[in-house]
Amino acid sequence: MTKVCVAGHGFMGGVHAGIYHGLGNADLAAVVDFQDGVREQAAAKYGCATHATIDAVLDDDSLELVDICLPTPIHREFVVKCLEAGKNVLCEKPLSLSMDDAEAILEAAEKAPGKFMVAHVIRFWPEYVVTKQLLDSGDLGAPLAANAARFVPAPDWSWDDWLLDPERSGGAVIDNHIHDLDYLNWIFGKPETIYARGLWSEQGGLDHVFTTLEYPDGKVAIAESGFFVPAGMGLVMTLKLQCEEGCVMLSNIADPTLTVYRPNREPEHPDVPKDDGYVAEIKYFLDCVANDKTPAILTPEDARLALATSRAALDSAKAKSEERL
């Protein structure tokens, strides 16, 4: 059984902690949070140790895995400390806010003995997993073009409203849009050109964005994402993927959520596992740790490319230019 510490018990930290607490092969042994009330709630809910700082965790050799669910600007500090202490580290996406921080994290991960993965959950979300499996099977031919969208009300629930502050979160383009940009890169590879336009929040964040990505061999994708939807609407995510031999349509608000169209055939509805994406990514990383396997579904380089693509979209919208990686 892997002994785990969750660092940061906000919304996402609470999700992750609850998953570890419910799994048979993980022991949620500690939670780190600087807020007294949060620590008290975590101790009462999970029966685990709690700490105000990460120092006690770094010195505890029994803790094998640290799950970083802290605000993005301090990912570098905490990820590097944990890696240098020999811990296995799962870091909530995005990898970091700046490319300099991303490079520092990847350098530390390369040198460290522990496993490292960024939690880009869409690579583990059932409908997106099945879609990738269809592509990898070759049954639909090569992917040619895609249209992805993702909408969620502005995250006004974060500590100190840090997610609404573009200087700390990067706005919707870094915090939310990155999900689809990463998935599109997983399908098509590294984009050659990135062109984005959007709407800016009162705080100065790019909080509704349209991005066109051109990939090698003339393949193209368009992604849209934003926080400018009414409170109470809930998460909406969609994908239309055009391939040589058919088309895949995905929507979390459709029933069924996944449909495959082929020429002159009835629509098909592939079986979609009922698994939760957050549970799947954590189970996968725990398996990598327990069996000494390097995470392959999402590599540190993949996470760096997702951040670079998102930052290029932000730069494009600011400068009204076409960006190249």
Score class of each variant (00 low, 15 high):
residue 212 T to L: 08
residue 159 W to C: 09
residue 289 V to Q: 01
residue 73 P to R: 03
residue 235 L to Y: 10
residue 196 A to M: 01
residue 187 I to D: 04
residue 170 G to I: 02
residue 50 T to A: 11
residue 8 G to L: 09
residue 142 A to I: 08
residue 203 Q to N: 11
residue 132 K to G: 07
residue 291 N to P: 05
residue 184 L to S: 07
residue 70 L to V: 14
residue 324 R to L: 04
residue 119 A to N: 15
residue 32 V to C: 12
residue 8 G to F: 05
residue 196 A to I: 01
residue 275 D to K: 02
residue 134 L to Y: 14
residue 209 V to C: 13
residue 206 L to P: 04
residue 271 D to Q: 10
residue 256 P to M: 12
residue 256 P to F: 12
residue 217 D to N: 08
residue 203 Q to R: 14
residue 124 F to I: 08
residue 220 V to N: 02
residue 43 A to M: 14
residue 264 N to H: 11
residue 290 A to P: 04
residue 239 L to C: 11
residue 147 N to P: 02
residue 113 P to T: 05
residue 62 S to P: 08
residue 123 R to W: 09
residue 256 P to Y: 12
residue 69 C to W: 09
residue 16 H to Q: 15
residue 251 S to I: 02
residue 222 I to P: 00
residue 26 A to N: 07
residue 169 S to L: 05
residue 180 D to P: 01
residue 242 Q to M: 12
residue 316 S to Q: 00
residue 292 D to T: 09
residue 218 G to D: 04
residue 164 L to I: 04
residue 24 G to R: 09
residue 135 L to R: 09
residue 72 T to H: 00
residue 167 E to A: 11
residue 194 I to H: 00
residue 217 D to K: 07
residue 35 Q to T: 14
residue 255 D to V: 13
residue 226 G to W: 03
residue 216 P to L: 10
residue 237 M to C: 10
residue 164 L to V: 04
residue 313 A to N: 01
residue 306 A to H: 02
residue 144 L to R: 15
residue 3 K to S: 13
residue 163 L to C: 08
residue 49 A to G: 11
residue 279 V to H: 06
residue 269 H to M: 07
residue 27 D to A: 13
residue 147 N to E: 15
residue 192 E to V: 13
residue 267 P to H: 14
